[in-house]
Design a protein around this nucleic acid. Structure first.
Lengths: 203, 203
DNA sequence: CTATAATTACTTACCGATAAGTAAGGAGAC
DNA sequence: GTCTCCTTACTTATCGGTAAGTAATTATAG
């Protein structure tokens, strides 16, 4: 028997959709409440304020991300680990659709208002990547790289590809010349990106 | 004799700073007015409303970007053109500091509220890149690529690197292990990215 | 076993701050 | 005088947050 999700879980899920779609400021608690079929103060029963709700949504996802990344990069081969890092991230985005836009918005914002707890989780994933690059360098397969830059290449290419679906449609309707070929899925872009980055990094 | 900029120009410049730093919703016209040392309705004299001011800021920059990109990719060599495309974009970001965050925020938003006029300018730059890749394919130096994906790799890596300065500081203070090497300048990242993308694309 | 107390999980009704936008008028250039 | 470019003073809507109350469940005392 499948248990019905608790109200708190529902709020978190719906809030993620709204923060993803509209951003922090344009997300209205009243709208979340309506979508959950509860009253606005019911949200305040479960969460101290809007910022706390946002932090809960964020932390849940960053924690899960750090975990799957750590779990899937345990090989001894740096190239395999790097490939797995990228694929794991791509898969996470596919399975956690709201995360792309939330993350992309945070990056655009310089993560100025990102809670410390999330910074810690994010640092873990960066640390994982830095270790992979470092071991690759020791084994002579990679040159010395700036982990943050590589992280940005991976993370922003995939999150942005995920958020720009509406943009791609608009652009391709403007560009009649450019053939409107079928829009690749994020999974395919992930695989493509993985190959490109490995080609670019291996010496 | 250097002419003092008009009030309208000042508003546009200050507005760009605010939209860049705070995003559309958290940008307050009262704050812009104060920074310009004028009253809020003075803004309404020059611009119909907040959305029109934002559109003016956006269009100014997207138009300038499309122009410099077009002007600097006129070689016959696709590799040279691609390198120049990336370097021109990087230089534009350095010289137009507010643009990175504004662009990154729009991408995170899926450019849902981006005015048609800006979509057109943005499409031009994408078209330029598509032509470069196409001519490279014809000349047998590039494989068949998805222009939008390559565009995302270039644009988001550089804009995000530019916006994430505060994040990089926070992260490196969390990660005591990872050596806190000097933070590369955007110019260096641009050059690095150009080399990587060319290596990844040339067959 | 039941009466009562306490806790959980909400509701309705409201407040106050804020920020977009407007009405009306004034100073100075030509 | 009138046009441009602005000011002060205001209206209005929205939205985060709160106060106060309530139904349903659970724990506890006698």
């Amino acid at each position: 028997m499948t248990q019905r999700p608790s109200k708190k879980t529902t709020i978190l899920e719906v809030a993620a959709e709204h923060f993803s779609r509209y951003g922090y400021d344009a997300t209205h608690l009243e709208a979340i409440a309506k979508a959950c079929d509860i009253s606005k103060p019911a949200i305040y029963y479960h969460f101290r304020d809007k910022a706390a709700l946002y932090e809960a949504v964020l932390l849940e996802r960053f924690t899960a991300l750090a975990k799957v990344i750590a779990d899937n990069t345990k090989s001894d081969d740096p190239v395999e680990n790097l490939s797995s890092y990228i694929h794991t991230f791509g898969t996470f985005l596919v399975e956690t659709p709201c995360f792309s836009a939330i993350f992309a918005r945070e990056i655009a914002d310089g993560a100025r208002s990102m809670p410390e707890s999330c910074i810690v989780e994010l640092s873990k994933t960066l640390n994982t990547l830095a270790s992979i690059l470092e071991s690759g360098k020791r084994q002579g397969v990679f040159d010395c790289e700036n982990p943050f830059m590589i992280q940005m290449m991976i993370v922003t290419t995939l999150t942005s590809y995920s958020t720009t679906r509406p943009l791609r449609e608009k652009v391709s309707s403007v560009l009649a010349e450019v053939d409107r070929k079928i829009d690749p899925r994020l999974e395919d872009i992930t695989d493509n990106l993985s190959q490109k980055i490995i080609k670019a990094l291996t010496c």
